[in-house]
Write a protein that binds this DNA or RNA. Structure first.
Length: 502
RNA sequence: GGCGCAUUGGUGUAGUUGGUUAACACGCCGCCCUCUCAAGGCGGAGACCACGGGUUCGAGUCCCGUAUGCGCUACCA
């Protein structure tokens, strides 16, 4: 049987990195098994869902390179009739019943507290909660039909048998069992508009879509038993479940936008200059590992080849970042991995990303793809070695692409103001450099060192001063390569104008 | 409150039939390289494998208990 998996986000906000990772694992599993990867947008909560969210989720998946869905995207809201029909069928078959209890008030905010209080109150009673105490549970069908026909509002609940237990083998967490006494007669359809609830919708849709493997977050693990019950009531085969460990914040709390801000949003990584392959690689390693062989840098193909559900962990992973240290705005390993990709990936793959970065910074010039294309390649190859994100090409790297750049204050202090004689040395050096022939790194080095000897100063003084003069920075590639790439005229001009900063 | 799941250095993980000094990556520190900073090379600090019992000649690996964390428990998804 062909494997069919789905990623089913609800479009109530940006794409959370935890969801992105769930999508990735689904995708990897489908590709690994030669199966189908489907997308279902769970937009049943019209209040909170938005087209904008849907769009941003789609964009995020495309950015990650996993948007090659094998079938049309399914929108859950358009399946409401099917969900309702399924529930009505269960009522007819006596597997579900109409509950005419008036709908209770519930303040969304303190549900958790309410649950705990109710449970504590019940604890005083007999053996736990009596989930089958509903007076409408065994109402004769004729009376139920009559009251419904009379227009009395009702909800539809699944009739969970009081004895026994449900079980399923989770591909990650292993054998799971839960006594029926722990499961209430869950509501399938809301009273009033008879709109379907989540547990019903997912099951009906997954059956409809022929899903064979449900791979999702561990927060659904306990509720899976309810869904198994629905599958069984509906007489459908139960798919294989694989629950994924959660991704936690440094304080081990759930990662949330409200508390942790933009670090949890996938788009942040795109906007801050991450290479998609790097972030994808990092994400894959959160809650999964290939086992024995500990090579961590893996291409998409390698990830597909090595991915298994058995390699998924059971313990939650901590996403480590600091909200006070800007250098650690996100997990350091993610940053390291991105730098690794930036400096080692094939230049032709990096080029388009650098292009769009330079474009959005207004630094792109048409010649970069024409007469200067060779120069551009050399330059990028030179400066990428110490960059971390794509943003660095327009930030620290600005001076390579434009004459208008800023001098880093600390760099000026350290390399230019340090020695007053630089005010005179720099223009003289400019003169010398301007005459170098041919214009190569070696020739410039010879000229500069000779000049230093003549003036009786250390070459290092001139080299460091030149670095700040030509790039505005205190750090960067080997200086003679920088001269080479910046060019004779621009180098000389920058040396001269830097004299005024001394 | 009930039920479930988890627990290896700061973080991500390896350690799949119990057997020697618990491995790797990130981060951190030092040295080398050197025109700076990275990268790279070499080395180092950091884990009594949550805790307590038990089984065993021997346990990170099996069993029980405790603690802690997380999840679920809703006419939210």
């Amino acid at each position: 049987m062909t494997v069919r998996v789905r990623f089913a986000p609800s479009p109530t906000g940006y794409l959370h990195i935890g969801s992105a990772r769930t999508a990735l694992f689904n995708w990897l599993y489908a590709r690994k098994r030669g199966g189908k990867f489907l997308l279902r947008v769970e937009d049943t909560d019209l209040q909170r869902s938005s087209d904008e969210s849907t769009r941003s989720i789609l964009e995020g998946l495309a950015w990650l390179g996993i948007s090659d869905y094998d079938e049309e995207i399914v929108f859950q809201s358009s399946n409401a009739d099917k969900h309702r029909a399924a529930a009505e069928r269960l009522v007819r078959e006596g597997r579900a019943y109409r509950d005419f209890t008036p709908k209770g008030e519930r303040s969304d905010a303190n549900v958790k507290q309410e649950i705990a209080e109710r449970a504590r109150a019940q604890a005083g009673g007999a053996e736990g909660a009596d989930h089958r105490a509903n007076p409408y549970r065994d109402l004769p069908p004729e009376e139920s039909d009559r009251r419904a026909a009379a227009g009395e509002p009702f909800a539809v609940r699944l009739k969970v048998s009081p004895e026994g237990e449900t079980r399923f083998a989770d591909a990650v967490y292993g054998e799971q069992t839960r006594a029926h006494s722990e499961i209430e007669d869950l509501v399938l359809l809301r009273s009033g508009d008879l709109s379907p609830l989540y547990n019903l919708s997912v099951v009906v849709d997954d059956i409809e879509m022929g899903i064979t493997h449900v791979i999702r977050g561990q927060d659904h693990l306990t509720n899976t038993h309810k869904q198994v019950l629905i599958y069984e009531a509906l007489g459908a085969p139960v798919p294989t479940f694989a629950h994924l460990p959660l991704i936690l914040a440094p304080n081990k709390a759930k990662l949330s936008k409200r508390k942790h801000g933009e670090v949890v949003s996938l788009t942040t990584y795109r906007d801050r200059g991450f290479v998609p392959a790097a972030f994808r690689n990092y994400l894959a390693l959160l809650g999964w590992s290939p086992g024995e062989e500990n090579r961590e840098i893996m291409s998409l193909e390698e990830l597909v080849e090595r991915f298994t559900l058995e390699g998924v962990h059971r313990s939650n992973a901590v996403f480590n970042f600091s909200d006070t240290d800007p250098r650690q705005w996100t997990d350091q390993k993610a940053l390291w991995m991105n730098a690794e990709y930036v400096r080692t990936m094939p230049l032709e793959e990096l080029l388009p990303m650098v292009k769009s970065e330079l474009e959005s910074a207004g630094l792109w010039r048409a010649e970069f793809e024409g007469g200067l294309s060779g120069w551009l390649g050399r330059t990028i190859d030179l400066i990428r070695q110490r960059f971390i994100t794509l943003k660095d090409f327009s930030g620290q790297g600005r001076a390579y692409f434009a004459d208008g750049f800023e001098y880093d204050e600390a760099a000026v202090r350290k390399n230019l103001k340090k020695d007053a004689s630089l005010a005179e040395l720099l223009p003289a050096l400019a003169e010398r450099v301007g005459a170098v022939e041919p214009w190569t790194a070696e020739a410039v080095e010879q000229a500069l060192r000779a000049f230093a000897d003549e003036r009786g100063v250390k070459a290092g003084l001139l080299i460091n001063a030149s670095r700040t003069a030509l790039t505005g920075q205190s750090v960067g590639p080997s200086m003679f390569d920088v001269f080479d790439v910046i060019g004779r005229e621009r180098s000389a001009a920058r040396l001269r104008s830097a004299a005024s900063l001394v």
